[in-house]
Nucleic acid binder design. Structure first.
Length: 232
DNA sequence: TTCCTGAAAA
DNA sequence: TTTTCAGGAA
């Protein structure tokens, strides 16, 4: 049954088909790669506008300074913190954001304090922290707090725009609501789906797409008529 | 607009 | 070798 929910043109069947096709092609992704919920959260901040491989180096440098927990991060000299974050890019900005986040995290009572809130309240609390926007908040909600929130990133927009499910420039909340309402709340599915989207966007559905071996080829207008979609 | 790195393309 | 590109939040 076709439902049009907030600009998402795909029905449940097509969304599940895409997931199944990606899973068949790439398998389990084991996301989010982190040792603890707190590490998920700092990774979410560091990965803003940044490739994950660069985030890993920054995390390794934090680890080398024994600074993978909030108190230890705040204890670092700001210049030292920024230096550790250098490989992740925007290091001065991210040093400030990470500190601001740690302050709020501790003030809120850490994982237990935030974990006691219902999803909407927690989301609003996260969004109030300077440096946490919708995508970063949703990374945290899904992978650190196990809440049924669908993460929308640049890769999600690109892939589903090419497939014809969205225009691509909709508001974040529109797309998120579309996926969540069409698929229904399902934490394991949302975790795996987003991880597969990232994998697929890096592997095949890049800015310059590699369509010939794409697992979604048969369902993709962009793969069938590349010239019409050259700039997508 | 600004913030910044590292991989890929030219 | 130099230039372009990819990637969120304020």
């Amino acid at each position: 049954m076709r439902r049009q929910v907030n600009h998402l043109e795909f029905d449940e069947g097509r969304l599940r088909w895409v997931h199944a096709a990606l899973f068949a092609a790439y398998g389990h992704q084991h996301w989010w790669p982190a040792e603890s919920p707190f590490e998920v959260m700092i990774g979410a901040v560091l990965t803003q506008n940044t490739a994950w491989s660069n985030v890993e180096r920054a995390l390794a440098r934090l680890s080398a300074s024994s600074a993978l927990e909030p108190a230890a991060i705040l204890a670092l000299d700001p210049a030292e913190l920024a230096e550790a974050l250098r490989p992740a890019g925007y290091f001065n900005l991210k040093a400030r954001r990470l500190s601001a986040f740690c302050v709020e995290y501790l003030a809120a009572g850490g994982l237990e304090g935030w974990g006691a809130l219902d999803t909407e309240t927690l989301r609003r609390a996260l969004l109030k922290v300077n440096g946490i926007g919708p995508e970063t908040a949703d990374d945290m909600l899904l992978y650190a707090f196990e809440r049924p929130v669908f993460v929308v990133d640049a890769y999600t927009r690109r892939i589903f725009a090419r497939l014809g499910a969205i225009a691509g420039d909709e508001a974040y909340e529109q797309i998120r609501a579309g996926f969540e309402q069409t698929l229904g709340p399902d934490v394991p599915l949302f975790k795996e789906y987003h991880a597969l989207i990232v994998q697929h966007a890096k592997q095949a559905c890049r800015a310059r797409p590699i369509c010939p071996d794409c697992p979604l080829r048969e369902a993709c207008p962009a793969a069938l008529a590349p010239s019409l979609h050259a700039k997508m």
